[in-house]
């Protein structure tokens, strides 16, 4: 499996790159969708303990059909398994873990991320949309580090990294770092700052697809 193409990282490539930045023993909440891929790319020798906000710490991968339990599910309502040392708990306890700052990392998808760390990932604000938020606002309010995992632009080619979010916010100034198919970018007091380019990707290519200036490593010093 190749993790990089001429167009930057694949989805699995982004997940693999992100997983490298998670310390051994971290308690991690993976958002629904593309962040779930991180669980397939845990670096050799590390163990992460996955929290799913519907009430399980020590979530394991999808079950074999014979072990499938409709009441052992993740926040995306997909059936999962439990690892040795797992624990079940109610929603108040689960969000005490989240809001109380006990989790080390939250990995979320995004519709838009602004240069000041604002995140929009729950609603496009369209008139006919059914609003649904789940635990996203609690996660960004309570978890120390919030990594966003996303394609750099929308299907229509619009930047998802922007100066100001136009979609309704999930939280203000909450994003720590962004992992896209093109680059790893920090959110700093001075805005977006380049950490790393995906293999074969030039800085100008990334900047052209980003709605706000990106400070380069050189300029950050």
């Amino acid at each position: 499996m190749t993790s990089a193409t001429a167009n930057g990282w694949t989805r699995d490539g982004i997940a693999k790159r992100l997983a490298q930045d998670i310390p051994n023993g971290s308690y991690v909440n993976l958002g629904i969708g593309i962040p779930e891929l991180v669980a397939s790319h845990v670096p050799e020798g590390r163990t992460f303990i996955y929290h799913t906000e519907n009430g399980l710490l020590g979530m394991g991968p999808s079950p074999a059909a014979s072990e499938s339990d409709p009441e052992l599910i993740n926040a995306g309502k997909r059936r999962v398994t439990m690892m040795p040392g797992a624990a079940f708990f109610d929603q108040a306890t689960s969000f005490a873990m989240i809001r109380g700052g006990h989790l080390d990392l939250s990995v979320l998808g995004a519709l838009q991320v602004a240069a000041n760390g604002d995140l929009a990932n729950w609603s496009t604000g369209a008139d006919d949309a059914i609003p649904a938020v789940g635990g996203a606002m609690d996660l960004v309010a309570g978890v120390k580090r919030v990594f966003v995992m996303t394609t750099h632009v929308t299907k229509e080619g619009e930047p998802k990294l922007v100066q100001h979010c136009t979609y309704p916010l999930t939280g203000r100034g909450v994003v720590t770092r962004i992992y896209s198919d093109l680059a790893v970018i920090d959110v700093t007091e001075r805005g977006f700052a380049l950490v790393e380019l995906a293999p074969g990707i030039a800085f100008d290519f990334v900047q052209e697809r980003t709605g706000a200036p990106i400070i380069t490593k050189h300029a950050r010093k």
Partner: peptide, 29 residues
């Protein structure tokens, strides 16, 4: 928000009439 929903129910059952949370600050909710 899910955590606020859980805590509002917990509070209701625990005799806590209201509480402050950082969740949803700066959002439409």
């Amino acid at each position: 928000p899910q955590g606020t929903l859980a805590e509002r129910i917990r509070a209701g059952g625990a005799g806590i009439v209201a509480f402050y949370t950082p969740t949803a600050v700066g959002t439409p909710l």
